[in-house]
């Protein structure tokens, strides 16, 4: 095997795992864009969605039905969060909202495990994890499938945001909350939609990561991987989350393979955070974030 095709293989592997990071980061970015809240509970939502899905399949529901039921549960959860947490805190400081989401995440973790138990459950999506050869490179079939799923998800979301009436209102709220309210856009409804979409993303991320790691408490930690992605891409850029997810995925794999041997390996786990710190020093708003257009 030539050096170059080995390099390509590492890059492709990195891209595919980067897609998984993007999936988690997207949920954060959406909520941050629309409401200025860093939703600490996104990881808990991933766990909650995955546990609910697995729980329902254990009751004998077929996958598609379990998916739909879980989706409904996540939407109901979103409306509940809007009513019980966001609405009473309207107009409060971002830090207060952030703390509220920490509380929310503890509540969700507890609730999920109360209902579905604490045991580790396997989740088999029926996609084999065997590598297939593709132009001389070995590619994981599972990773490829998740990449396609993520790409479809992103495409559907961007059509939703750019062409529909609600998507437009959502971007308006992200741009200027007060002006959007004055224009007649009900903030509560938009927040419920955003959290619902974030719940949908959490469900997809939960399935993908759950199939990879098993459905267990550690899924909430997946959210930590989204942090460097958001720092790199910017907290309020969907395009940024996609690109940064891929960059993080590729760079951590390349670093592991090419730099790892010099420092004794194990780079993969901390490299994204080192990269994030470097980005913070060089460009605090991230590669794509907060490039607010303004002409005075």
């Amino acid at each position: 095997m030539s050096d170059f095709s080995f390099f390509l293989e590492v890059v492709v592997g990195g891209l595919l795992s980067g897609v998984m990071y993007t999936l988690v980061a997207l949920g954060f970015v959406l909520i941050f864009k629309a409401s200025g809240v860093f939703n600490f509970a996104q990881g808990a939502m991933v766990l909650f969605a995955a546990l609910t899905f697995v729980g329902f399949t254990e009751y004998g529901l077929p996958y598609w039905a379990a998916f739909l039921v879980t989706l409904v549960v996540m939407m109901a959860l979103a409306v509940g969060i809007e009513r019980a947490v966001l609405r009473p805190l309207l107009g409060q400081d971002a830090m207060i909202l952030f703390m509220a989401t920490i509380g929310l995440s503890i509540f969700l973790e507890g609730l999920a495990q109360l209902i579905w138990g604490t045991g580790v459950r396997g989740l088999d999506l029926g996609i084999p994890d065997d590598p297939i050869e593709w132009g001389g490179i070995l590619v994981s079939q599972f990773d490829l499938s998740t990449a396609v799923m993520a790409a479809v998800l992103v495409a559907v979301l961007s059509v939703f945001f750019s062409t529909t009436r609600i998507g437009r209102a959502l971007r308006a709220v992200a741009d200027d909350t007060q002006a959007a309210q004055v224009a007649g856009v009900p903030l509560g409804f938009i927040w419920a939609v955003v959290w619902g979409v974030a719940g949908f993303i959490a469900l997809v991320a939960g399935l993908v990561w759950g199939a990879r790691l098993g459905v267990q408490f550690a899924l909430t930690l997946v959210a930590l991987k989204a942090l460097p992605v958001m720092i790199l891409g910017g907290f309020n850029s969907i395009a940024g989350a996609i690109v940064a997810g891929l960059v993080i995925g590729v760079s951590e794999k390349l670093a592991e393979v090419y730099l790892g041997p010099f420092v004794g390996g194990g780079i993969e786990n901390w490299f994204p955070y080192a990269l994030a710190v470097a980005v913070l020093l060089w460009r605090p708003t991230g590669l794509f974030g907060a490039a607010r257009i303004a002409r005075v």
């Binding site: 971007r171 308006a172 741009d175 200027d176 007060q178 002006a179 607010r292 303004a294």
Partner: peptide, 9 residues
């Protein structure tokens, strides 16, 4: 006051 258009729209 200050117009408040949605700048990215």
């Amino acid at each position: 006051e200050g117009r408040h258009c949605f700048p990215t729209l």
